[in-house]
Design a protein around this nucleic acid. Structure first.
Lengths: 225, 225
DNA sequence: CATAAAAAATGAGTACACTCATTTTCTGTT
DNA sequence: AACAGAAAATGAGTGTACTCATTTTTTATG
């Protein structure tokens, strides 16, 4: 398609350094274009309503190329969760104001932000979100990435709980704590997806109430069971 | 619906009260054969690994016929959950021993039974289970049945919680109680699917501990948040 | 610059879930 | 029994996610 041929100027890229050759630059560009096209279309027409043909057309590549970058359409959709988690962690770490807040305030802020982030994709997010829960299986050897994703999220939460432990806000909970928060987040998203109240206020109200209630329980009971 | 039925002149079908003709009998038979074939194959090769062609072949029907009985392959898989819930309710109601047990014992027994029931289908059950959580959407106007299914389950749980309230085991929780139990069950299944311990003992142990712990919290704190 | 090897892109081909116009089977009526 | 209309079964056809042998582009090396 393109006829731009490189006349040899001897400037070889360094091995092992961060220097990017033409190949890498192009590759990244293509990936970005696929992602942009996919996100647009998923939001427009949902996950099922979008074909891989459309995505590749909008991205300006052949259909087969898409599958050189993502194993499946689902994987492609899953990528946005990867990004969400990364962005979330970066956002939290760059937010000095939050670092001084109480634990329920932190958790509320985190989950609220995640919901806001997901809002424009609400119509297609459920399909991917719940599928990412399925375990690895002989028959379906995909979900390794989602496994990693979940792990990253759990470790992030564990860090936040550890902070609260140090400040004496809560007793030591161990891994069960972050697992519980993760599960709770799952419930929040399920509720949020089904919430038809204006601006999803119902979900936010429940979220706030439950977080503070859980704090009280954790303090009084000590989670000794 | 039309109500023109059997006439006095004809020999009416005598099978049961529901007046079954040859047509109805055949229809039921076909449905049963599809279900039997599907369950076998899903357990053998998983949900993805089984084609609708195989199912119809094993059931001895044309491929198109399958879709006269079930809108999608997923619907077909979902049917086993329907059945599970019905069987569970019947089992509970026929179990006089359980009626006298404490709430956590009841819930443990119920969930334990469900896990046992699902065990032979473990490899394909996750795929369906989590998908049934997705809300109704314009783009994906299926999940009405799974909505109904969930509702039936929630009402069953609400009945059990109501019993416990009457006996003074727990304070009134309202609908939030059964919703919470349902969500908890979700977490249990997620844990169970990922549990590689011998005989899934780890899940059962956590289940037992958490149920009793939650009872203690409910009694002492009164769930007033 | 020429060449070869590696990486990336390509698109016709495949397998699958699902549709639908047509055919076959059943039922009530005369 | 004969018929007509309804219900059910059929299987060739359709659209789509994904594969893979081949072609094109990029890089490394003399």
């Amino acid at each position: 398609m393109k006829s731009k041929r490189k006349s040899a100027q001897n400037v070889p890229p360094r091995e092992g350094s961060a220097a990017e050759g033409k190949r890498d630059r192009k590759k990244e560009l293509t990936k970005d274009r696929i992602l942009a096209a996919a996100l647009e279309l998923f939001r427009e027409k949902g996950l099922e309503g979008t074909t891989t043909k459309e995505i590749s057309q909008r991205a300006g590549i052949a259909e087969g190329t898409l599958f050189n970058y993502f194993r499946t359409k689902e994987d492609l959709a899953l990528f946005f969760f990867q990004k969400e988690t990364d962005d979330l962690i970066a956002w939290y770490q760059g937010n000095t104001h939050l670092a001084k807040a109480s634990l329920p305030e932190k958790l509320f802020a985190i989950m609220h932000r995640q919901l806001e982030y997901l809002a424009p994709s609400e119509d297609f997010i459920g399909a991917v979100f719940f599928r990412s829960l399925q375990p690895h299986s002989k028959l379906n050897p995909l979900s390794l990435e989602s496994q990693q994703l979940r792990l990253r999220y759990l470790m992030f939460i564990r860090g936040i709980l550890a902070e609260a432990e140090e400040k004496g806000e809560i007793p030591p909970l161990g891994d069960l704590g972050s697992y519980g928060v993760g599960l709770f987040y799952l419930g929040v998203v399920a509720h949020w997806l089904n919430d038809t109240s204006e601006g999803k206020q119902k979900t936010l109200a429940v979220l706030d109430r439950v977080l503070h209630g859980a704090m009280r329980i954790a303090r009084k009971e000590g989670w000794e069971w």
